[in-house]
């Protein structure tokens, strides 16, 4: 990785009227990094990406991509970055090859280079034997990979992927990530949003956005490691779904979730374990067993948001607006 960051955001802010979609967000992404961008719908992820791609002007603050100011050098930037949006634009009544030719031309490629890049794209997306298939007839997983390679035809140094694998099955998702890894290993910077936390685990670092603000930015291992030893427990007991309702009301239980035949608890401090078990036994649960376990990324995400306190988190209090939904 080179020393110059591929992406820099500094106090980046975007307002829509009185609504602050992105609120003083600062971070840096290294060249060749796979940078995951997590957060609820409406957290400000897409707005941030649109600013970084030069599609939307920041209201305040500064951002640069590959050393180019996104507000001033948007035009120059366009040819050096790739952007795959949530609703990527492929033409369903054109074939795979025709789509690639169209997008290649749009990025200013022609002649031998265009042909060479189309050949690369077909191979990378494992679509060689389908290059004459109409895009409308492709299975979803191939759609997504085609959209990805289309965004890479002009060999951008930074690529922004907005929920690229939504609705794709695990095998396809995995092949998609193989391709992303190949790109990153070769030095391309990959900036990706996802709702799949198992997918976030593949990123070198992840940023967590909530209500326009950047709440956390670290490696997944570090985010999971923020819990003190003994504060994350796996509970085995009879009728765990019913036990969940009991445990949520116990003091010191920060988070509780049902995992099939077990429960996961996050406690405020390790000393609470005994107390919690006693409570459960007091409520009539007999065969209760607790084992310390490692936090999942989901627990880390939920916990980080909950730590904000109800007002900032938006809506943990019953009856308030559902958290995660920041709407007009």
């Amino acid at each position: 990785m080179s020393a110059t960051p591929a992406v820099v955001a500094s106090e980046l802010t975007r307002r829509f009227g009185s609504f602050v979609a992105v609120d003083r967000v600062s971070f840096q992404v290294a060249a060749g990094e796979i940078f995951g961008f997590l957060g609820s719908n409406g957290a400000g992820k897409t707005t941030t990406i649109r600013m970084l791609c030069g599609l939307l002007a920041p209201s305040r603050g500064f951002a640069s991509v590959l050393g180019l100011d996104v507000a001033r050098d948007a035009r120059a930037l366009r040819h050096r970055i790739g952007y795959m949006s949530q609703r990527f634009s492929l033409y369903s009544d054109l074939t795979v090859a025709e789509n690639l030719a169209f997008w290649g031309a749009a990025y200013g490629l022609s002649g031998a280079r265009l042909e060479q890049r189309i050949a690369w794209a077909l191979a990378a997306a494992e679509l060689e034997d389908r290059h004459r298939t109409l895009v409308g007839a492709l299975p979803a997983g191939f759609h997504q990979r085609l959209a990805l390679v289309a965004a890479l035809l002009h060999e951008p140094s930074v690529v922004f992927l907005d929920e690229p694998t939504s609705g794709v099955d695990p095998d396809m998702r995995r092949r998609f990530w193989d391709l992303i890894d190949t790109l990153a290993a070769a030095g391309t910077t990959v900036f990706v949003t996802t709702h799949y936390l198992d997918e976030a685990e593949r990123c070198h670092r992840v940023a967590l956005m909530h209500a326009g603000r950047l709440l956390a930015l670290d490696t997944v291992a570090a985010l999971k490691g923020k819990f003190a030893a003994g504060t994350v427990l796996e509970i085995h007991c009879e009728q765990p779904a019913r036990a969940l309702g009991v445990l949520e009301r116990v003091e010191g239980v920060m988070d509780a979730a049902l995992f099939g035949e077990t429960l996961h608890l996050v406690l405020d401090h390790p000393g609470r374990g005994e107390q919690v078990l006693a409570h459960l036994q007091g409520a009539g649960f007999t065969s209760v067993r607790a084992t310390p376990t490692a936090a999942t990324l989901e627990e880390a995400v939920i916990h980080t948001i909950k730590s904000l306190g109800p007002r900032e988190a938006g809506a943990l209090a019953p009856g308030a607006a559902p958290w995660g939904e920041v709407g007009p």
Binding site: S40, G167, H195, A241
Partner: peptide, 24 residues
């Protein structure tokens, strides 16, 4: 059938929280 495709983790968690009550 794939009830939470494209749904963020927080909303997904709420979804499953309701299901846990119904399971109970």
């Amino acid at each position: 059938d794939e009830p939470t495709a494209g749904v963020d983790p927080v909303t997904r968690r709420e979804f499953w929280r309701l299901l846990a009550d119904l399971l109970a």
